[in-house]
Design a protein around this nucleic acid. Structure first.
Lengths: 117, 117
DNA sequence: CTGTCGTACTACGTCTGGCGTAGTAAAAGT
DNA sequence: ACTTTTACTACGCCAGACGTAGTACGACAG
């Protein structure tokens, strides 16, 4: 029942990833775990979605990659957010508010209250 | 500045259309105007998006089409929502609440307050 | 009575993001 | 020694949105 269709999230995977990169550079596996934790398992990003988001965002100049010199553990590709990335993130936040406002016009509150379906 | 990217709305165009059909059968042009009005011009659905949504939803059994016998004016294709369509609409409303909850975790409130970008 | 605007669509093709499937490989746990 | 976890890459498909274009009828102005 409570799975989120990907079409809804579409366009916000990038935002989620950038949200964590705002704080500090990170890499795929860590971010995927953070998303899972923050959403209390309500949303789990697919690996392919995650890594293709990285490539796309690097191409767009929102993030830059660098290789880690790990003393121990596996070698990872880290990503750092750019100024353009911060701008893009802020834009998406503003857009989200607008979108929320728009969509909410079409949501029937009553249907939700008595969960009748 | 304040245009909504289609990727965000994606998956909710159907919901918007069904929202109006809940009340009474309607047709393309009327619905497109109603969406524009209800959202105060914040969102205007593209014609191709609208009509392809009709075909898709009819194929899925959410709506059924019938021809109008207009005494005057142009002939139109009307659509009526089905029980399955109502169910689908209710599902989408519930899904929306979940999605909102999830995405909001990643939205920085401060960025929004001082609109700094 | 002619041209333009509003109404009401259909057809076709492209793009993008998400995701299924599969495979690789090193480190860490048992 | 084997399995699990970590950390990816490659390939290809699919669906929804949308650009472009064209059709056609009615109303209304000049």
């Amino acid at each position: 029942m409570n799975t989120i269709s990907s079409d809804v999230i579409r366009g916000y995977n990038d935002t989620m990833i950038l949200f964590f990169l705002l704080e500090k550079p990170s890499y795929g596996y860590e971010i995927s775990k953070q998303i899972k934790t923050l959403t209390k398992e309500k949303y789990v990003i697919k690996e392919t979605t995650l890594y293709s988001a990285f490539t796309r965002m690097e191409k767009n100049g929102y993030i830059v990659s660098f290789s880690s010199d790990e003393e121990s553990g596996k070698r990872r590709t880290y990503y750092r957010i750019t100024d353009l990335g911060r701008e893009y993130y802020a834009q998406k936040c503003a857009e989200w508010n607008l979108t929320k406002e728009v969509i909410e016009n079409f949501i029937d509150k009553e249907v939700l209250q008595n969960g009748s379906y």
